[in-house]
Computed example of a mutant assay.
Amino acid sequence: MVLLMTLPGLALFYGGMVRRKNVIATITQSVAAFAVVTLVWFVAGYSIAFGVNPDEGLNRFIGSFDAVFLNGVTKDTAYSALPGIPEYLWISFQLTFAVITPALITGAFAERIKYSGLLLFIALWSLIVYAPIAHWVWGGGFLGAEGVLDFAGGAVVHVNSGVAGLVCALFLGARKGYGVVPITAHNPVLTMIGASLLLVGWIGFNAGSAGAADGLMSVALINTLLAAAAGSLSWKFIERIEKRKWSLIGVLSGVVAGLVAITPAAGFVDPKGAVIIGLIAGPVCYVSSVWLKKLLKYDDSLDAFGLHGAGGLVGALLTGVFATTAVNDLSADATVWAQFMGLVWTIVWSAIGTLIVLVICKYTIGLRVKEEVEDEGLDTHLHGEALEAS
């Protein structure tokens, strides 16, 4: 179900929002994330994120390399933190989280990146940025030890990808004509299909993170649905007030905003808290995606930061407010301060690591397509394919 979020969920969600000449290129980027990250996870990503470093001091920051190429893992081994779960199952489940995170970033630089540069970026970013942060929070690292609560990826996935996306958008610069000529979504219906698949896949994302079909899973499930609905409605009303319209993409963006915000909190808050988080996430993500982007004049093409960065920040902080021991005993340790510090560490490492990866890619393979390629469309030039003219 989590893999469904990337293929075809996110691929169609993003693909519907770009111009016709770049649809195939945008969808292909999600496929690239799956292919590259799967192999990187096998080679070293899993070991860095979830391996136990024999040096306790180093284990606070990075896992071991004992499980590179999945050495030592068999059908009979179990993941240490969840002894009832076969390790191959745990590896596969966490792989899907690792896949969608860089796939989300692609929304920030849609319609202007070279495919070869994208492949290198995803590989390096997964090892340098994603795997260490996953270890810090979920793999026995220092953030988890200091009480940072992140049930299914508010910081690890959404804030991480949102901040990385913002850095990428600033580094690559805006699309040609951005802010001067209209750049409109070619097919909001594709975006609706993609958002619907994201919603279904998100059940696996959040409820699956309970690790068992139990009461905690059921709370995470209902919280996911409630927050999505609340986020959609609150986004709708803000958009209606400002634009006097109820756009389909706006309605769907509100759904995603609620889903993002509830992700860190899904297994720590009760349903009332989930509704409040969703209601807050809608307007916050709207402001970030619409007003902030216009004010600061950066081109986050498909609102990777506007939705995932801002929504993840809101959700992570509100987890510290609404977490309750009636849902999860770990909520006893919840504080807004711990959540804030977890976000600071995530933001700083994501920003620095992403910038390093971008510099490496720029001065080796290159990142941005030539101006004539951007003018005519990435589909034909990079992939030799194009949608038929309507």
Rank of each mutant, 00 (worst) to 15 (best):
M5Q: 09
L10I: 07
R19F: 03
K21M: 04
A33S: 15
F34N: 12
F34C: 15
V36L: 12
V36D: 08
V37Q: 07
W41S: 12
Y46R: 10
E56L: 13
S64N: 09
A67L: 14
A67H: 15
F69Y: 11
V73S: 10
V73T: 11
T77E: 12
P83W: 02
I85Q: 15
L89Q: 14
I91T: 08
T101I: 10
A103D: 02
A103G: 06
G107T: 02
A110F: 07
S126W: 00
L127D: 03
H135V: 02
G140V: 05
G141W: 03
F151P: 01
A152T: 00
G154E: 05
V163S: 09
C168T: 13
A174Q: 10
V181G: 04
P182R: 12
A185K: 06
A195G: 15
L199F: 14
V200Q: 04
G211I: 04
G215W: 00
L226T: 00
L233V: 14
W235T: 02
I238E: 08
I241Y: 14
L248G: 01
L248D: 00
I249W: 01
V260P: 02
V260E: 08
D270A: 15
K272T: 13
K272G: 09
S289H: 03
K293M: 11
K293N: 06
K297D: 13
K297N: 14
G306A: 09
G312M: 10
L313E: 00
G315F: 10
L317K: 08
L318H: 01
T324N: 06
N328V: 06
S331Q: 04
D333I: 02
V336E: 06
Q339Y: 09
V348S: 11
G353W: 07
L355C: 13
G366S: 05
G366Y: 03
T380A: 14
H381M: 11
E388A: 14
A389L: 14
A389S: 12
S390A: 12
S390K: 14
